[in-house]
Amino acid sequence: MKLEDIKVCILRIEGTNCETESYQAFERLGAKPEMVHLKQLTGQDVRESEKRSITDYQILMIPGGFSSGDYVRAGAIFAARMKTKLAAPMEEFIREGRAVLGVCNGFQVLVEMGFLPGIDGIMSPVPQAVLSTNDSSRFECRPTLLKYENNYNCIFTQKIKSGQVLLIPSAHAEGKLLFPHDRAEQIYRQLEDNDQIVFRYVDPNGEYAGYPWNPNGSPHNIAGICNPSGNVMGMMPHPERVFHRYTHPDWTRGFGSEIGDGRAIFESVLDHISKKF
């Protein structure tokens, strides 16, 4: 399908942030994004003309933020509200090979909904992971360095070079990706075998490092993962905040390019969808 026909649902509820940057990232690349409130998909308290169906879109993006005040657990209320009405349509959406991207709070929502890591099928009835409180017990907000570690299973990263280090900012208080304590190492190995690990936090030498390079204490430095089919990706750092080079903190030092490090993620998924559908 043509790039200009690709419809992107930028999903929001109270407390979503960076939806404008996400919208603009897709729009600037020629696709048709639309900001959609969760109630428009569930059909609650909205006019008939405002109702939308998830099947109208090829890409669903859940942006960052502090949905529902991050009460209970980050992303838990957003996820529970989606689960009641949208679990089956979303499962179908993913089965058809459409793309789902969760950034920051969106990653937390996908994990709480059971779509990530997705090792026992598209959606697990109970969460298989959690994005837990940062080791520092604080909100960590700063540029982070991510090493691209996927072997091209993930449809969001096809345009990134293997081993490339990207500067993408993090801003979260709950970003430590944990699996059930007794099976954690087994799951990490499974993620590696399935090529589900997409990004890891590194230091300026590209080496795995602890705090502050790893802002949350995530075991194995994991910053982003995808499902086994590669069409659902969640990551804590915000690629939409570095679409342009001039939003990098070091842009005045001159790097001869106007392209920000986050742009490749949006380009990759649009390229994949335009070829697939």
């Binding site: 209970v72 657990r73 969460p127 298989q128 959690v130």
Partner: peptide, 10 residues
């Protein structure tokens, strides 16, 4: 508890 308040992972 299962729908919202607790995540059985932690």
């Amino acid at each position: 508890c299962l729908a919202l308040l607790a995540n059985p992972v932690i």
